[in-house]
Design a protein around this nucleic acid. Structure first.
Lengths: 232, 232
DNA sequence: TAACGTTTGAAACACTTGTTTAAATTGCTT
DNA sequence: AAGCAATTTAAACAAGTGTTTCAAACGTTA
C-alpha cells in the first residue's frame, strides 16, 4: 500500500509550483494550471499565498535555505576535516557537487531547482535583495574562506574572478542538462547537441559525477597555474 | 540636423523587439507595447511577420547570422595569421572577445543581444533546431578546429568538455553584467553584488576587456595543465 | 488621373490572465 | 450537538492577451 501522509494544500502548491516553474518558466505557468497540478482550487493560491508573485518567492526561498545550508555545511566540513589545509580540488569539488546535486538531482520527483539559474538569468526575479543577501553573499563568503584555506595566495579580487569562472561553469552544466532533457527524443536538435555535448547520454548521477570531476580539475589546474604558490 | 534615413516598418519592429525582448523577456512584452515602441500599428506585427512567435524567430536569426559570421571570420583569421600554430590563449581570446562584443556591447543603442544566453537558458526557444544547426554547430566546429591547431593534443571528447567550460564562463559574465545593469542605483542588491563582483563598476568596454583577459588566461592555463604537451 | 496591389489604421474578436466574491464545507473546541 | 473560525468551492470579474477584420490611405504603374 502506498503510504499517503496527508500533505497540506500549501505544500502541494509549493511542490507543484517548484516543478512547473522550473520546467516551463514562471510566466508560462498559469494559476489554473498550477491549481490543477496541485489538485486544489484556483483561489487557493491567493488564499494561502497572496498572489502568484508571492508564491514564486516562497518557492525560491524554501529551496534556497535548504541549498544554502547544505553548501555551508559541506564547505565547513571539508575545511575542518582536512587538517587546516584542504586541497584546492577538494574545495571546488565540494561546492560543485552540492550545487549540482541540490539543483539537478536525485530528488523524489524530477523537481530540480534549476530556479537558481533561473533567478540569475531570468527576468522574473523580484526577491532580488533577499536572494543576494541571504543566498549569494553567505555562500560566496564561505567559498572564499575555503579557497583561501586551500590556497592562501589568492587575494580578494582574485577570488571574485575565480569564483565567477567556477560558478559560470556550474550554471552552464546545469542549463545544458536541462536543455537536453527538454528535447524530444530523436529530434534534430538533440542529435546536434549530442555531437557537441556527449555527456548528455548519461544518467543524472553519472552526469553530476562527470561534470563535478571536470569542473574541479579544470578550475584548480587553472588557479594553480595562474596564481602559483611560493616555492620556498 | 539629425539624418533620418527612413526605416521600414519591419526594421523598426525588429529593432524594438530585439531591445525589448532582451530587456524584459519575451513573455513580458506585449504586442501593443511593442507596437508603441516601434511606432507602428498593432496589426503590423501580424501583417509583416506572422505572429509574435515568428517575430522572435526573425529577431534571433538576424542577430545570429551576424554573430556567427563575425565569430567564424575572427577564428579563421587568428589561425591563418599565426603561421599555423596560434597560441591557445590567442584562440580563446578571439572567441570570447567576439562573443562579448557582439552580445554586450558597443552598439548604438543599449540593445545588446543577450538573447543568445536567453535562447540557451530561457523557456521560449522554439527555433531550437535552426538555432543548434545554424549557430551552435558551426561555431563549435570552427572553435574546435582552432583549438586543435593551437593544441593538437586535445581529443574530440576533451574539446566538448573544455569548450563547455569556456562557453559557461562567457555566458555567466554576460549575465552578471546584465544583472548589475538591471539593478537600481544604490539598491541593496547592487551593493551586495558589488562586494561579490567588483568589475561591475567598469564601462562596457573595460568590462569586456577585463573579462576576456581573465577567461582566456584562466582557460588556457587550465588546458595546458590538464592536457600537457608532449615534451619530446 | 485612374486603377492597381501594398501597407496602415481603429475597432472588434475570442480567449486567457490573476484576482475576488460569497456561499458551502470542513475541522475543532466547547 | 452547537458554534465558530479556517478552509475550500464554483462563479464572476476586470483587465490584458494575440490575432483578425475591413475600410482608409498610400505609392506605383498605366
Amino acid at each position: 500500500m502506498t503510504e499517503t501522509p496527508p500533505i497540506s494544500t500549501q505544500d502541494r502548491l509549493l511542490d507543484a509550483a517548484e516543478e512547473l516553474f522550473a520546467t516551463k518558466g514562471f510566466s508560462e505557468v498559469s494559476i489554473r494550471e498550477l491549481a490543477a497540478a496541485a489538485d486544489v482550487n484556483v483561489a487557493a493560491v491567493n488564499y494561502h499565498f497572496q498572489g502568484k508573485d508571492n508564491l514564486l518567492q516562497e518557492v525560491i526561498l524554501r529551496r534556497f535555505v535548504q541549498q544554502r545550508e547544505a553548501t555551508l555545511n559541506a564547505l565547513e566540513k571539508v575545511v575542518t576535516e582536512a587538517g587546516d589545509r584542504p586541497s584546492l580540488e577538494q574545495v571546488i569539488d565540494t561546492l560543485v557537487r552540492t550545487y549540482l546535486t541540490g539543483t539537478l538531482g536525485t530528488r523524489k520527483k524530477v523537481t530540480f531547482l534549476s530556479m537558481i539559474a533561473e533567478e540569475m538569468t531570468g527576468h522574473h526575479a523580484q526577491a532580488h535583495d533577499v536572494f543576494f543577501k541571504e543566498m549569494i553573499a553567505p555562500v560566496f563568503a564561505a567559498f572564499s574562506r575555503a579557497l583561501t584555506a586551500a590556497h592562501p595566495r589568492l587575494t580578494a579580487e582574485d577570488l571574485t574572478w575565480v569564483i565567477a569562472s567556477i560558478v559560470g561553469q556550474i550554471h552552464h552544466f546545469i542549463v545544458r542538462w536541462k536543455k537536453a532533457r527538454s528535447f524530444e527524443e530523436d529530434s534534430e536538435a538533440l542529435r546536434t547537441m549530442l555531437r557537441v555535448f556527449p555527456p548528455v547520454g548519461l544518467t543524472v548521477e553519472q552526469y553530476i559525477e562527470a561534470a563535478t570531476d571536470h569542473i574541479s580539475r579544470f578550475s584548480s589546474a587553472a588557479i594553480l597555474a595562474l596564481y602559483p604558490e611560493d616555492q620556498q
